[in-house]
């Protein structure tokens, strides 16, 4: 399974989101089964085509548009609890 964390530039918010998503996956014992990568909005459309789940903000979800992956909107990128709540049902 592949998760792509998307932000505008691929160096800031998506990296934080990737780190926190990996933290959630470790807690669930799923970190061996799921790859998480960070991507900027330019490469995200391509990356989202091969991903199962896209994590991003409400603003950027509109930019990504229609992709086969499940797009999950995260409001607070630093809140591991919110990420866990939204991600757990999708990876278990």
């Amino acid at each position: 399974m592949k998760i792509v964390a998307v932000c505008g530039m691929g160096i800031g918010t998506s990296v934080l989101l990737k780190m926190n998503a990996e933290k959630v996956l470790r807690t669930l014992g799923k970190d061996q089964d799921v790859d998480v990568e960070a991507a900027d909005i330019g490469t995200a459309k391509g990356a989202a085509r091969t991903a199962d789940i896209v994590l991003t903000s409400a603003d950027l979800a509109d930019e990504i548009g229609e992709v086969p992956a499940k797009v999950v909107i995260i409001d607070n990128f630093t809140d591991v609890g919110e990420i866990a709540e939204k991600l757990t049902p999708l990876v278990s």
């Binding site: 505008g8 918010t13 934080l16 903000s57 930019e63 607070n76």
Partner: peptide, 14 residues
């Protein structure tokens, strides 16, 4: 260009 997505948590912008 991309909107205020840099406000990644309540009260905090990166």
């Amino acid at each position: 260009k991309l909107g205020p997505y840099i406000v990644l948590a309540p009260g905090v912008a990166l």
